[in-house]
C-alpha cells in the first residue's frame, strides 16, 4: 500500500502555477476559502462600527451660532445655512406661523438628498424619493426615510436668530 501520492504538488507550487489556465482557475475549495475570508472581513467591519461609536462619537454642536436676522426670513420661508464645525453640515431654518422657528439638518436620512420646506403643504419634502417630514418635530410622515431629521434648537435674541444643540438628545 503506497499512501504517498507520487503526483502531489506542494502548496507553493499550486499557488503559483506555470500554466495560465491553472492560474486563473478558482476551484470551489478556493471559493469557499474566499467566502470565509469575506465573512471575517464583515465581522471586522461590524467591529469598526462599535469602536467608532465607542471612541469617536459624533460631536455635539457647542455654543450658539448666529444664522441671520429675523427680518430676513418671512413667514413660510426657509433659509439655508451652514455651521462650520469638524464637518460642514448644511442646515435649514424654517419660519413657521406664530413666529415659530425650527432648524433641521438638510440631509435627508434616507440617502442624504437636500430637503426643502414646502409652505403650500406645510411639510418638509425630500424631492428625490418623495419623503416627507413634520416641519415642527422633524418626524417622518411618509416615504422611505428611516429616521427623523436631526434638529437644532433656535434662539431668537434682539431680532437675530441663533442655533444651538438640542438638549433632549436620545441615547438608546
Amino acid at each position: 500500500m503506497d499512501e504517498k501520492k507520487p503526483d502531489k504538488v506542494p502548496n507553493w507550487k499550486r499557488d503559483f502555477p506555470i500554466q495560465k489556465k491553472k492560474a486563473t482557475h478558482v476551484s470551489r475549495r478556493e471559493f469557499a476559502k474566499y467566502l470565509g475570508l469575506f465573512s471575517g472581513t464583515l465581522a471586522l467591519g461590524n467591529g469598526a462600527i462599535v469602536i467608532k461609536s465607542l471612541y469617536f462619537p459624533e460631536e455635539e454642536l457647542k455654543g450658539e451660532h448666529f444664522v441671520c436676522n429675523q427680518a430676513d426670513v418671512p413667514v413660510g420661508e426657509m433659509f439655508q445655512f451652514e455651521v462650520a464645525g469638524t464637518t460642514v453640515v448644511p442646515y435649514i431654518l424654517i419660519h413657521l406661523e406664530d413666529n415659530e422657528w425650527r432648524a433641521f439638518e438638510q440631509k435627508c436620512t434616507h440617502l442624504a438628498c437636500a430637503v426643502r420646506y414646502r409652505a403650500d403643504i406645510e411639510k418638509i419634502e425630500c424631492p428625490c424619493h418623495k419623503g416627507y417630514f413634520n416641519p415642527r418635530t422633524g418626524d417622518v410622515l411618509q416615504g422611505p426615510p428611516p429616521r427623523p431629521l436631526p434638529q437644532l434648537a433656535v434662539v431668537v435674541k434682539d431680532g437675530q436668530i441663533y442655533v444651538k444643540a438640542k438638549d433632549q438628545e436620545k441615547f438608546i
Binding site: 467591529g47 462599535v50 461609536s53 465607542l54 462619537p57
Partner: peptide, 21 residues
C-alpha cells in the same frame, strides 16, 4: 443605527457577526 448613536444594536450585530465568522 450607528448614525443614531444606537450603540446596543451595533454591539449585538458585532457579536452575531463574529459568531458567524
Amino acid at each position: 443605527n450607528a448614525l443614531r448613536e444606537n450603540f446596543n444594536f451595533a454591539l449585538t450585530t458585532f457579536i452575531g457577526s463574529s459568531i458567524l465568522a
